[in-house]
Design a protein around this nucleic acid. Structure first.
Lengths: 252, 252
DNA sequence: GCTGACGTACTTGTATGGTAGCCGACCGAC
DNA sequence: GTCGGTCGGCTACCATACAAGTACGTCAGC
């Protein structure tokens, strides 16, 4: 969590306000701190973060491009609900790119690459032991990114990362079943083992089923949290929350 | 080509100024009307298009996210030069996604799908006969998009399209060898034939080699137009064109 | 001729003002 | 009670003003 005053103090080297705001908002949305369907007003955010509307607005435009918010002109901007279509699309993109990269990585991977991946695995096990979900999420992200880097296609990772964002919001709800973590780590280890062994087809199949497991979790979540999902492709009338001002606002 | 006054007159239904400007600029960049390396000033564009800096600026931010322009704070914004790394990455993404989609399309494709694809093929042949390069480019885009749609992953097309933009700028220079067009169309036809026949592996291989041919063209172009390329990953000091005000300098 | 300081004209970044348009509550007519 | 018009308040959109910073031409000093 980033406080308002912390925006410009920590790690702002070379990054302008727009990029900082973008990172903060993206983190809040993917971390479900901002729930799907909730309104994100330019004015409110600007006031909260202590900046003007301009960088906030520009950040929201980028987030809209990523499909994380929906902008309705003259109505408002809302954190996008999770859409069946978008999740399926994200899964397809992720699977295609990560598996294609893995197939190229087999044979290219050196001892150093494998060693670095194994370091991440032990770190994940440590996070599991401590039930550190947030840490595991970060290590999971790093593992998959590193895996792609081995193939030499690190620059394609942002595309995967963007697709993954759609999936991660739902995963964030599914992982509390902590037993899952060790299962996922085991699958990670299997992929690394097969990569090291040079078994192309089985490595591919292993990673694919790993990713599909994650995908199937999302579907389970839908029945438990239907309010976070949207059936429509273009959800109209996001319903403005008219009771907001009377209840929440105490200042001014 | 879109004139300044035409911005808001034609087909502006439901699209705001930012989106219109974005489309215009993207078209100009991919169409090489704006050459790689050339400066795109927010002020100049705003004046030319008859709008304020705000929508222009927001468009440029989106284009920077797509990798089509590089923004150097307090220095200027420049149409990005074609980068080896970016082209390779784009090729990888395109190949992985289109081939994965095709593999899923085999078996799903109905007679109607095949028929629609064949309509596009005949249209491409007509464009070839008339040496209508611009028309062929558009039909090529539509063909590949339709091909992905058959698999049910039409919503993943924008990702491919974005990657393709990096390749298309170079292709635009390579295609003048008109003989290539009929070759490409032949490869398109082969893909459709194999898709209809349900031959998964050969269809995949056919599409892959088609995409690789396009990719190899880009490399040839590099030797002919080195000024459009950049060796660096992060090209510093794009050199402001100080003679801009006096006159257009004579080209080589 | 060469070097280095300096001013000017440009750039993008940020802040703020004004506008059109939509929603939802309110209120009168029936 | 139900329907329809109206009006206030909110929204994102666009325009504009100001600030911070860079590049380059100029020119003094050597």
């Amino acid at each position: 969590m980033v406080s308002a005053e912390g925006l410009h103090t920590a790690r702002s080297r070379g990054r302008n306000t727009r990029q900082l705001v973008h990172e903060v908002l993206r983190s809040r949305i993917v971390g479900l701190e901002l729930e799907p369907g909730s309104a994100v007003s330019e004015n409110d955010l600007a006031a909260e973060l202590g900046v003007s509307r301009t960088p906030v607005r520009e950040s929201l435009i980028l987030l809209a491009d990523e499909g994380l918010v929906d902008i309705y002109p003259q109505m408002g901007t809302f954190v996008s609900r999770i859409r069946e279509r978008a999740v399926a699309s994200a899964q397809f993109i992720r699977e295609a790119l990560e598996c294609a990269a893995l197939r190229e990585a087999v044979g290219k991977a050196g001892a150093r690459d494998v060693a670095e991946l194994r370091v991440l695995l032990t770190a994940q096990e440590e996070a599991d032991r401590q039930s550190d979900m947030e840490g595991f999420f970060q290590l999971d992200e790093e593992f998959h990114a590193r895996l792609m880097a081995v193939s030499g296609h690190a620059s394609a990772w942002p595309v995967v990362s963007q697709a993954k964002a759609q999936l991660d919001r739902a995963r964030r709800l599914s992982l509390p079943m902590t037993q899952q973590m060790s299962l996922l780590i085991g699958q990670h280890r299997e992929v690394v083992d097969l990569l090291e062994a040079g078994d192309l087809d089985r490595a591919d199949e292993s990673l694919r089923s790993h990713l599909r497991l994650v995908f199937s979790d999302v579907e389970k979540i839908r029945t438990k949290h239907p309010e976070l999902f949207s059936d429509e492709d273009a959800p109209l009338r996001p319903r403005r929350d008219s009771a907001r001002r009377t209840a929440a606002r105490g200042d001014r």
